[in-house]
Structures are given as C-alpha cells and as structure tokens.
Design a protein around this nucleic acid. Structure first.
Length: 491
RNA sequence: CGGGGUGUAGCGUAGCCUGGUAUCGCGCCACAUUUGGGAUGUGGAGGUCGUAGGUUCAAAUCCUGCCACCCCGACCA
C-alpha cells in the first residue's frame, strides 16, 4: 500500500478525498458523479442502516418498497414540489436499443419511445401518495407509518464522494395522519430519532432546528433538520424531517372518513437520511493518520496483531491471540485477528489506523510470557500494557470510553465554533476567520437571507428549536428581530 | 455552463517540447532471510499508451476531431 499523505490542514478537500479512497470506503465510478461503495464503506453503512431500521420499527414504522420510476404526470401534481426538483431529474424516454444498420453501433431505438416519460425518483412523495389514495379510506387506516430504503437520483452539477453524489442511498419515511397535530408530533419524533442516532451512534453532535422558508423542502409546510459542524468549520445538513400539511393529500386526493362520517384530507410527513451521513462521520472525527471510527459503527472494533519471530513463537502467540479473540467475542465485540504472515506489524498498525479501527491489541512472545497485551486506542493514540485478566470487560469499557471521547471532542469543537455576533463587521469576521456557526439576529425576510448569501456564501442553517426569544436588530438591515438564528457556510 | 487539470500495467508515474523497440516506484507471483511502528534480497508475470482519424519509412510523442473523469466556481428540496 502506497499512501500519499495529504494533510487535513493543507487541503481539507484533498484530504477528504484521499481518505475516502485510501481507507477503502469508496471510489469514483466511471459514471460521472457516481461512486462505488466498497465493502468496508458499505459495512459501515449497513451498521447505520441496522441501527436506524431498529429505531424506525420501535417507533411503529414498517418498511415497504415503491418503484424507481415515477410517471411524469404524478411528479408534476404538486406544484412547488416539481419546481424544487425539476432541474435535477434523470428522465427515461425510451425502452429499447437496436443495432444501427449503417454504423453497426448500438443506438436508442427511436420507435421505442415511451408514451409518457418516467422520472427516476429524486424522492418518492408523489408515487407513494398516489398509492396512499387507495390504501387510506377510513380513520381506522391511520396513522399509516411507512419507511423505504432506496436509491435516488438527483442530477447535481457538482458532486463529492458521499456528500453529494448523483445517485445515493437513503431511507425515506412517509406517513399519513388524521390530524395536523399528530403529523407534527411524528415530524418531531423522527427528528429526535435522527438526533439521538447522530450523537450516540455517529458521535456527531447536532443542532435541531427548523429551516427558513427559503431553505424549506419543496412541498413542505415546515422542514425540521439536524445540522452538524465539520472539522473545516463548514456545516452539514445531516437529516431532515418535513411536515407536509395536506399538500400531497390534496394533490393526490387522499381522503379518509372520520368517525363522524365526514371526508377529510389526511396530514403528511416525510423524513430522510442518506449516505451523506458517511461523509459526516468521516469529516467529523478523522485525522492525518486516517479514519477515526466510533466503536458503535466500526465494522471491526478490535484488531489483534500477533508478533513473532520463530515458528514456536508463532504457535504460542497465535494460541493466546485466539483465546483473547474468543473472550472478546463472548462480549459481542467484533474482533479481527490479523495473522497474515507476509506483512510486518508496523505495516498492520498503520493500515488499521488508516481504517479507523478503535482498538488495536498487539501480542508478542514477551506478552505471552507476562500474561499481558499492548492495547492502543485510535482516538488518542495512547498505548498501554494491560494484563489479560478480565480483558473482555476492560476492552468493553475502553470501547465505550472511546465512543464518549470521540463525541466529546466533536462537541467541544462544535461549541467553540458557535459565535454570537451583533454587528455586520463581527458577522463577517466570525465567518471568515473563526468559521463555524454564527449566531445572529435576522429580520425574518427571505430577501435579507438571500442578500446575506450573495454577500458571504453563508446561509441560515436553522432556527434552533427551543430558541431563546430576545429583542435585537438584524445584523444586515438593522430591522427588528425577535431571535438569533444560525448562519454558516455549508456543504 | 465558465475556469483549470488528467487519461501510459491493479495503483501512482516518467517519457511528449526535439518522432526511432515503454521508465521508475508500490502492489502481485516464487524462493530465501525477516517480523514489538509502513522489511530485504534474487528471480518473474503483467501494456490495444482514453478514442477515431491524419501526417510520416516510423507516432505515447506532431496535427484534427471526439469521449471520459477529477478539481475550483455557479447550482444544491
């Protein structure tokens, strides 16, 4: 393995790209803007999926699957929705290829034109709500709580591995409710699920909030979000949960009969997180040595590296290593014993650091002799010699300490990078020199928000939930304001 | 869409200006010695030089067209 070291401080974006490739998470495919997620990267995504899926089911949701293709007519039924997505849709127009009789090349058969074009889903509200029309007849059918794991396509002009790819993997929840209150409750509940997952599993602290009108999802009444802060001081939207009101119910004529035998439109939510979370994970914790994975997501939590010179040492060391592997496994710790004999220990140390394995155990003849092992943690790079007595409990404890430490470190960084400002000069200074979130008064108009974006590239990331109300003056216009909002440059 | 760049072995590259049998490193295979922080030696395998055409006795190299991807920006519910 020949690793070109790119320093995080020199070029954050080059560092990120080389990390994704070198840690074997993903690579660019030959299709523009699309990536191949490699087994190690996919294993992390699968762990995210498994944990989220469990949480969705615990909150009463069921999984289902809807088609990849959406008839154009469905897609255009909700006006603001189509406005929001029209510019980035892949469209299927034909269903057959043929050999051109003259050039002998494979070409699209012009005779195989579809009557109605199919949109490759950028999100599935429309096709799902088209089904819900026939699924929902009575108040007894509500709430309808569905989630789908799927791929979607958004034809973005500019892409970045995991953060914004043309095709990406995600889950999208789509629920229907009898009342607005219940739907809003669902929206907030799922936001809490996301926030809890982000902080306790990804170890990425997030701010829960609502989007400004300008940043709201196309077709939503209110968009709730969780916002994270990456190590370069840019914000990342990590998940959204939308209260859709009756917009889609009206567009797709989804009504139910109440107890009182009245026809009412249902109330909707949708919510999603994507493989972008992989980007958040990488950018929040990693360093110049490579990936740093929180134990709760690491496909390999502990790697054991045996060290030996002679054949008889090898036998002894491997025997002890297997013993340790076994007791760790009894604690449901995922352990890899790397007994490859063509690589030196030093090489393996570096390799597992690159891959972010939280704990490394080295065991050599000396350790076998002393009934000890050398334990190294990835997050702090600390090494210590530990007795093998009760090793499984010690490692289990260490893993949970590492999980906490990684989160705390990210939290400290995040909190240090929220700057309250009162003047335009302070605003610019904080944004340029300190980076991160800037907490400032805003007059509440889209006009001002857009002006600020044009001048600074910063957008309103969110209006934090449970925000303190205080009188103030808009940082740009000086107009009256009732609360601070969070601005930042973002991905 | 604008600006910049790249395309040569699995990966990373040299060669291109000044045309003449394809360079080096990593990785891979074999053997030996090694193994507590990215081992060493010896031998070996691996190439339609992105693609199509042109110039030429001869093209990775010069000319023309095309394609693809990457980076920066615009865009991004």
């Amino acid at each position: 393995m020949d690793i070109k070291k790119v320093k995080r401080s020199d070029n954050y974006s080059a560092w990120y790209n080389s990390l994704v490739k070198n840690a074997d998470l993903a690579e660019h495919s030959d299709v523009k803007g699309c990536m191949v997620i490699k087994p190690y990267g996919y294993a992390i995504w699968e762990k995210m999926q498994a944990d989220l899926d469990r949480r969705f089911k615990e909150t009463g949701h069921q999984n289902a699957y809807f088609p990849l293709f959406i008839p154009k007519s469905f897609f255009t039924k909700e006006a603001s929705h189509v406005d929001g997505f029209a510019k980035e849709c892949a469209v299927v127009t034909h269903y057959r290829l043929k050999v051109d009789p003259i050039t002998k090349e494979i070409v699209v058969d012009p005779d195989a034109k579809l009557e109605e074009e199919l949109i490759v889903r950028p999100t599935s509200e429309t096709i799902i709500w088209n089904s819900y029309r026939s699924w929902i007849k009575s108040y007894r059918d509500l709430p309808l709580l569905i989630n789908q794991w799927a791929n979607v396509v958004r034809w973005e002009m500019r892409t970045r591995l995991f953060l914004r790819t043309t095709e990406f993997l995600w889950q999208e929840g789509h629920t229907a409710h009898a009342t607005a209150d219940e739907a809003i409750g669902e929206t907030k509940q799922m936001l809490d699920v996301y926030a809890d997952f982000a902080e306790n599993i990804l170890a990425v602290p997030v701010i829960k909030g609502v989007k400004s009108a300008n940043e709201r999802f196309a077709g939503a009444i209110e968009t709730y979000c969780i916002e994270g802060l990456m190590q370069d001081g840019k914000a990342l939207q990590m998940g959204t949960s939308h209260f859709l009101g009756q917009n889609f119910a009206k567009a797709f004529d989804v009504k139910y009969v109440t107890k009182e035998n009245k026809q009412e439109y249902v109330w909707a939510t949708s919510w999603g997180v994507s493989t972008r979370l992989m980007g958040a994970l990488i950018m929040s914790h990693s360093d110049d040595e490579g990936l740093v994975l929180p134990p709760n997501l690491a496909p390999i939590q502990v790697v054991i590296i045996p060290i030996f010179r002679k054949e008889e040492e090898k036998i002894l060391v491997l025997e002890k290593a297997k013993e340790i592997q076994k007791v760790l496994k009894s604690k449901h710790i995922s352990v890899k014993l790397d007994d490859r004999d063509n690589l030196t220990p030093g090489f393996k140390f570096a390799e597992y650091e690159l891959k972010g394995v939280p704990v490394r155990i080295a065991i050599g003849p000396r350790d076998v002799q002393n009934e000890s092992v050398e334990v190294a943690r990835r997050d702090t790079k600390e090494k210590q010699v530990m007795s093998v007595v009760d090793i499984e409990n010690k490692i289990e404890h260490l893993l949970s300490q590492i999980q906490k430490n990684i989160f705390q470190k990210a939290l400290d960084y995040r909190d240090e990078h929220i700057t309250a400002v009162n003047t335009w000069d302070e605003f610019l200074d904080a944004l340029e020199n300190k980076t991160g979130f800037v907490s400032a008064h805003w007059d509440g108009t889209t006009e001002t928000e857009i002006k600020i974006k044009e001048m600074t590239k910063a957008t309103i990331r969110c209006i934090p939930l449970n925000n303190k109300l205080e009188d103030g003056k808009c940082v740009l216009t000086g107009n009256a304001s009732t609360q601070r909002v969070l601005f930042a440059k973002s991905y």
